[in-house]
């Protein structure tokens, strides 16, 4: 068997998942992706565009789209909805002042028809940085109205994490990938 046919086989077998990471600016989206990927996180500047990460995780090929969260960029988010299997919404748990903004943006996002079937993972980030100020993930779930009617048909989960230490990241990514896999790949 030649190299090309091996490559082709690998590709056919490959189960691709498209994840979209969004959230307000400074929530830690890029740091989460880099930490998850084992990369250096000491010099991360605001994302003024996108960072795409193509990586393999537990037999899946993940294409992770991390798009900048600054207000001027948010109007472009809709360009990345197509074919999204899962949304990872990142919340800066310590930024209480903007939790209402955060909720508004999340709700607007989930009203989008193209994202209707996407699994939702909420990362309550920065949990370990400032334990006193960080709101527990249950409280964040409440502040984001995750228990309300609009989320009743959505597959969602919330996980506390710290992008800096990496705590909670694998657990969250595993949940979203498993949930997508159970919806998409196991149906056949």
């Amino acid at each position: 068997m030649g190299l090309l046919s091996i490559l082709k086989k690998v590709k056919e077998k490959e189960r691709e998942v498209r994840l979209l990471i969004l959230g307000l600016d400074n929530a830690g989206k890029t740091t989460i992706v880099k930490k998850f990927n084992g990369e250096d996180i000491t010099t991360i500047s605001p994302t003024l565009g996108f960072n795409i990460n193509t990586l393999e995780h537990k037999g899946f090929k993940l294409n992770v789209w991390d798009v900048g969260g600054q207000q001027t960029i948010r109007s472009y988010w809709r360009n990345y909805f197509e074919q999204t299997d899962g949304i990872i919404w990142v919340v800066d748990s310590a930024d209480r002042a903007r939790l209402q903004d955060c909720r508004r943006e999340l709700h607007a996002l989930l009203d989008q028809e193209k994202l209707a079937g996407a699994s939702l993972l909420v990362f309550a980030n920065k949990q370990a940085i400032d334990l006193a100020g960080a709101v527990q993930s249950a409280e964040i779930a409440e502040l984001l109205d995750l228990g309300s009617e609009r989320f009743s048909t959505r597959h969602w989960a919330i996980r506390a994490c710290s992008a800096v230490t990496g705590a909670g990241l694998a657990d969250g990514v595993d949940w979203v990938v498993d949930d997508i896999a159970s919806r998409i790949f196991m149906m056949a």
């Binding site: 990927n37 795409i52 990460n53 193509t54 990586l55 900048g68 360009n79």
Partner: peptide, 16 residues
């Protein structure tokens, strides 16, 4: 396929 690029953006593609 990178898809859409935001005007005046700087973008990164990491592939493993």
């Amino acid at each position: 396929t990178f898809g859409f690029c935001i005007p005046s953006s700087t973008n990164t593609w990491d592939a493993v």
